[in-house]
Design a protein around this nucleic acid. Structure first.
Lengths: 106, 106
DNA sequence: CATATACATGAACATATGTTCATGTATTCC
DNA sequence: GGAATACATGAACATATGTTCATGTATATG
């Protein structure tokens, strides 16, 4: 497997920021829901059994980072994945956590 | 792009934990260094211009999460990537942050 | 215009996190 | 064994973060 080119400091910081946003279970669940198709805020709160406020706060962060995009339709605002790259990242990570442990270490 | 299967709660939490660890610039730099080959703690501290203690603390977390593995050789301990999955995740994320923005949004 | 619905946002707070400093532990060499 | 080197670790602290509560703003409907 060819490793990625060594990134610049700015790229590293930007990547870390992305990972940081994905590093919270609530936000990760939000992203997964958005990958299945556009979801409005209220439905998201219902699906995740979280408060509307909490969901909205997280959506704002994810949207600002361009992980999600939003589209208003009447009173509701629908959120969905901004592009397909995040899906790749998640698939790879899913494989990583699904991998059996090769060696038993303390 | 086929989205990943909807993960269980436990998988989501585990993935979030991984992303959280990658969501710090110092740790991300450590991971990138390890992808280039095994590095001992002192060299890592030199390369990243950080204290030995800081590096060691971060290495412990990354090792505990099985993102890195360690191998002692005499007085030195060499760290390297535990497997190739992380490299895939990083490559995808690099593409993501490198992507030009499609729409101009406030 | 008034009311209701759907979402956004600011303040506040408890907790988590990254870093430093000091100290401890393992390994090598004399 | 003692000194030196390389790494690990615990405490402490400033700051960041996730969540809640209360309130604000936009859109639709009567």
């Amino acid at each position: 497997m060819t490793p990625p080119d060594h990134p610049t400091d700015d790229q590293t910081i930007e990547m870390a920021e992305m990972f940081r946003l994905m590093g919270d279970a609530t936000r990760l669940r939000i992203i997964f829901e958005c990958l299945k198709g556009p979801v409005c805020v209220g439905d998201m709160a219902d699906r995740l059994q979280a408060s509307q406020s909490l969901i909205s706060h997280h959506l704002r962060l994810l949207r600002a980072a361009r992980i999600l995009k939003s589209e208003r339709q009447g009173k509701q605002v629908f959120y969905s994945a901004a592009d397909e790259h995040i899906s790749c990242v998640l698939t790879d990570m899913a494989h990583h956590v699904g991998e059996p442990v090769s060696e038993f270490e303390v």
